[in-house]
Amino acid sequence: MERQFTGVVVRATGSWYDVRTEEGDTVKCRIRGRLRLKGVRSTNPVVVGDRITAERDEDGVGVIAEIMPRRNYIIRRASNLSKESHIIAANIDRALLLVTLFAPTTAPEFIDRFLVTCEAYRVPVTILLGKADLAAEDPEAVAQFKAVYEGAGYPVIEVSSVTGAGIEEIRTLLEGHTTLLAGNSGVGKSTLAGTIEPGLDVRVGSISESHLKGRHTTTFSTMYPLSSGGFLIDTPGIKGFGLIDIEEAELWHYFPEMMQLAPQCRYYNCTHVHEPGCAVRAAVEAGEMAWSRYESYLKMLDEDEKYRK
């Protein structure tokens, strides 16, 4: 048995890591101490999707020695009172953000923060509008949602694990790629994952009726091999999504519709908040850019300013 090997982290529990080797074996690994001492601001120095090199110790346990450079990753602030970051996953071809309009309702600000982070780290996103069987009872809300996000440049797929709507379209997206599936607790991520790939062993929880919020069912991110040849990364339900390492002056760069409008602004360094001749504000007032998206932008500027120093 080769002592040294390379592979991809498919599960990270904080102290132990499952690594899938190039031969397709899974090796339980721990982290070499000095990896923790390189000034990594993240709460988790090794994450699902990382390509690593490791070596087996005398007991055959893998020891991760090196993390290869990441192509991209999705990161969020670890908590509302923290400057530390938490990387959800790395080396992703696409993110699927599962949102729901009913039972529970996904907040627009959460959606927009996730999208901003994906834009900043060059991860393409497709929005999955879940529980389409429930959403069908309010077609106006669905049409309004799709107008906002398709207008911003994001594909939106209506999906339902009950009716099977959108499932084949998602399977086509997943073929041969590494895809992250994310969303708030309770939106049906684990159920959807099991519908996309029958037999996938993902734990499923229930909605707490008293709060209409999902109980956490997935504790750690896990990468699952798909029969199509790709991989699906199932993530823990995310309550909040704080931005980190995004400069205030750059924030609007991560709103695609604002990037399209900005060249028409009177001032090249327009912040799109108070300047005269701002094409972004004019578009919002004319209904050409969604107010909810602009409101999210203003909130991010205001609420996250203290974290960017």
Rank of each mutant, 00 (worst) to 15 (best):
T178R: 12
L243Y: 11
G176S: 05
G176H: 07
K83L: 15
V48R: 00
Y254G: 04
L81T: 11
V202S: 09
L134A: 08
S42T: 13
R71G: 06
E150I: 00
L200W: 02
T100I: 01
L35F: 00
H211Q: 14
E285Q: 15
V159L: 01
I74P: 07
V47D: 02
Q264H: 14
A152V: 03
K189G: 03
T271F: 01
A249T: 09
Q144N: 08
V8N: 06
T172W: 01
Y268S: 14
C270E: 09
E168I: 02
V116H: 05
E257K: 03
Y154T: 09
C29R: 02
V19S: 04
R308T: 12
F110S: 08
T195N: 07
Y154Q: 02
E275K: 04
I75D: 08
P69R: 02
A165G: 06
L35G: 00
Q260D: 00
T178C: 09
R293A: 13
L192C: 09
N184F: 05
M259N: 02
D18Y: 01
D18G: 01
S190D: 06
A135T: 09
M223L: 13
V19G: 03
E288G: 10
R56G: 09
L81H: 10
F102Q: 07
C270T: 08
N269V: 05
V40T: 02
Y17Q: 01
E55D: 05
V116E: 11
L232E: 09
A12R: 05
P69T: 03
R11F: 00
E295C: 12
S79K: 10
E209P: 14
A182L: 12
